[in-house]
Nucleic acid binder design. Structure first.
Lengths: 113, 113
DNA sequence: CTAACATTCGCACGATCGTTAAACTGTTGA
DNA sequence: TCAACAGTTTAACGATCGTGCGAATGTTAG
């Protein structure tokens, strides 16, 4: 019945206006970052844009697999795609994403040194 | 054969020393954040600690389900757990995590306004 | 012991991952 | 123009993993 647990201990933060759609979009991004293979691609892309063949060479995975992973990342809004001749270049969507990925990796890095 | 795609266009960023273990830990966190139910819990916890029964009341989900989700979040390193009498309080692990979750949600919020 | 709060177990269902093979798309040279 | 080719994407399939539910099990206070 009674929902209050702590006597009086409410830090009073204002909720950002958290719509359901926002939660879904954020979860999609989190989920996209939440697989080692895709996260490794994001890490490589912190250095700047790369084309699919570069990424296949750097990771050793098949072109098909890399392409599928890139699609998930792009669909979630983390990557942007640009065709240039025979090659397709992928890049982090913006600096906000760059910061997000950087923070995630750095937090994981100095979590248990 | 030839791996170079762009003539000469290398932004020269220094890689953080990105160990495999770091990638796995980061992916685990991303994956934990990557499900709407769990992300909603993280959002609620931005305001400060909450006990399981509070979260159950605020979300309308079953205690069992909330507890399972909290376990995934805690195991990934995002949450800390503290028992206090009959209640178990959960809180974001640290300010780094608070920033991470905040960034993810805010980026998703103003992505497609 | 009982009641309140929380966690864990077993199971069914759906989602996701990687592989293989086929389909596109754009470039190059006869 | 057309055919051959490199680069990339898509489809189909089996295997694996994750999610949520309900029941059973802990844990703590009175």
């Amino acid at each position: 019945m009674n929902a209050t647990c702590a006597p009086a201990d409410h830090p009073i933060h204002d909720h950002a206006p958290l719509s359901e759609a926002t939660v879904l979009r954020a979860a999609r991004m989190g989920s996209a970052m939440g697989e080692p293979g895709r996260l490794r691609l994001l890490a490589l892309l912190l250095d700047g844009r790369h084309c699919v063949s570069e990424l296949t060479a750097e990771t050793g995975d098949s072109t098909s697999l890399i392409s599928q992973r890139l699609k998930v990342l792009a669909d979630s809004g983390l990557l942007r795609r640009a065709r240039e001749g025979k090659h397709v270049y992928y890049n982090l969507a913006d600096d906000h994403v760059r910061e997000l990925v950087g923070n995630l990796l750095s937090h994981a890095a100095d979590d248990h040194p």
